[in-house]
Nucleic acid binder design. Structure first.
Lengths: 237, 237
DNA sequence: AGCAGTTCCGGGGTTTACCCCAGCCAATTG
DNA sequence: CAATTGGCTGGGGTAAACCCCGGAACTGCT
């Protein structure tokens, strides 16, 4: 029994046919269409292996994984993602239990890679997509890894907030915000006004650009943050 | 004869099986893996219908369409895109000849929609994905449509350039740049410092955020621009 | 010709973002 | 224990981004 969750028909079919072909012993393959549904189905069916798309309506793949692992910690999880975004690796790291078994494959993976990942997780190993390996390394590197303080500030400037607005929102002084931003710029390797005259940058926008490029943040995550933000400001009035 | 171009194996297989099933009269289905290859193959095979993925190595789907239509203006083109990005609609509008036959479908389209689009283009009609229709309307609306001047400025600030750097690059004064930005902010509906005290924004970053959200710009386009930029600065030294 | 719209450019202003320096406190780390 | 690191605070400064005003040239439209 294998459970797969993806909101797109095309991807479900692709995965289902791939699994029925290569893993006839593990049939049937059950399907879910969103995050909430897959949590419910997993609770009933207790499958040894679950495929989760990250981007799903109602409940993201990561949050779904959290809930499933809460009640059934021995479930093997394989995340499917369109991008090698660092945000997700970041979040996944927190959710997955220390000795949990999981895989992470990008959607542009070849069929062989998916089969390989499935075999690995079924036999109790982890399988991380080659492209992600580098990201994980960077996530654990002191010099380039962002702290939560820097990450918060990054999200705020990406939403277009001023220093003052950020300070008010995070209950800090403007100086503290600027301090966070300064170290953020340093870690992203953005030159300041003084050095390297040939490349003049607006550090604020440059930071957003580079962070998006590296997958530290992405649009859908930012949209979530913004809706949270507007809810809070409504509640406070 | 139908020619399809996509760099991802999964999408090619999906489309190929769909076409062989529903359009047995138009076989065979030929495949190309990147933009350059599809241009070459189209020149030899002269297919009546070509599917083009927008995001492809070497040559984007839009540029490939331009070259194909240049020598074979009667070719039917169906663009495939992952997103409803306004940038692409913008560019496509310029490339396609006035009476050209083309379709535009998003990759999250259902199988029925793809079949429908294929039928339409084969019989000489256009088929535009429902979600895109709204985008096209906005593209033709005076009040919200960006001029090329504003668009250039937008790309530059999204890359993190300063007013001074933009001015140097576009051969303008800083005042002119600021003038462009001002009208850009106005069209995006970003409040200035004076009005609406509850929402404080850094207009520059806010403009990038909103534009990305609305699909006026996107990361891969910006990456292209940046590589062009660094090439020019290298050449000028 | 007159009119509206867009773009570029100028002067002269305020606010914000960033810079350098230094110090304090807390939590890690050897 | 000392040493380090990350985070907040402060003073005081510069330059970039943004504000309002208006003018001139050019376009397309009626």
């Amino acid at each position: 029994m294998i459970l797969i969750a993806d909101d797109e028909e095309r991807d479900r079919n692709w995965l289902k046919s791939l699994l029925t072909e290569h893993f006839p012993d593990n049939l049937p393959v059950e399907e879910a269409h969103d995050g909430q549904q897959v949590v419910d189905m997993a609770a009933k069916l207790k499958p040894p292996l679950v495929f989760l798309d990250i981007k799903m309506p109602h409940l993201s793949g990561i949050k779904a994984a959290e809930q499933i692992l809460n009640s059934l910690p021995n479930t093997g999880i394989i995340m499917l993602s369109n991008f090698s975004d660092e945000v997700y690796v970041r979040q996944l790291w927190k959710v997955v239990p220390p000795n949990g078994v999981f895989g992470y494959v990008l959607k542009n993976a070849s069929n062989e890679q998916v089969v390989e990942a499935t075999k690995a997780v079924l036999s109790g190993d982890c399988w991380i997509h080659p492209g992600i390996a580098r990201v994980i390394q960077r996530t654990q590197n002191r010099a380039t890894n962002l702290t939560t303080a820097e990450y918060e500030a990054l999200v705020c400037i990406a939403l277009g907030m001023t220093d003052h607005a950020i300070a008010k929102r995070l209950y800090l002084t403007e100086k503290a915000v600027q301090s966070r931003l300064k170290s953020l710029y340093a870690k992203l390797g953005i030159p300041g006004r003084g050095e390297s005259h040939d490349t003049e940058f607006n550090q604020r926008c440059r930071a957003v650009f580079l962070s998006t490029k590296r997958g530290l943040i992405n649009q859908s995550e930012l949209d979530d943050w913004e809706s949270k933000l507007s809810q809070e400001t409504k509640a406070s009035t």
